[in-house]
């Protein structure tokens, strides 16, 4: 992990659910390849991924339905390998190869 080189990549899957897929071209699942380290040589984190999704994957301009004030907007749960990301360090979590990241908006209808 600490031996990540500048040209290494990490392959992960990113899923959207609960209506968020609408912001991502109605696709529920993406395979995403990220550099293993960011510009300053640190391992890439969830914060890096969220930024990457906004700039590269999101076709819908309504970014504020996904990110508000530079953080995931209230009402969206983030799961890292099916566990609440609060258990994993949230934005500071360092991504690992084959991680599955799920963004799901909470529902209120019934």
């Amino acid at each position: 992990m600490s031996a990540a080189k500048n040209n290494d990549t990490i392959d992960i899957t990113v899923d959207f659910s609960g209506g968020l897929e609408m912001l991502f071209d109605n696709k529920r699942r993406y395979s995403v390849s990220l550099p293993a380290v960011d510009g300053s040589g640190k391992p890439v984190t969830m914060a890096f991924l969220i930024d990457h999704l906004c700039t590269h994957l999101m076709k819908d301009p309504r970014v504020d339905l996904f990110v508000l004030d530079k953080h995931i907007r209230p009402g969206i749960l983030v799961l890292i390998n099916d566990a609440d990301w609060e258990l994993e360090g949230e934005e500071a979590y360092e991504l690992q190869p084959r991680d599955n990241i799920l963004f799901v908006s909470t529902l209120h209808g019934g």
Partner: peptide
């Protein structure tokens, strides 16, 4: 504890506005 803050009203979908499939809500 699980859902600390509600979504902004603009991001909130209701069945009346967004629609709902019977078996989906029925299953829940």
């Amino acid at each position: 504890c699980c859902f600390r803050k509600p979504p902004p009203p603009s991001a909130n979908l209701s069945c009346g506005e967004a629609g709902i499939m019977g078996p989906v809500v029925g299953m829940m």
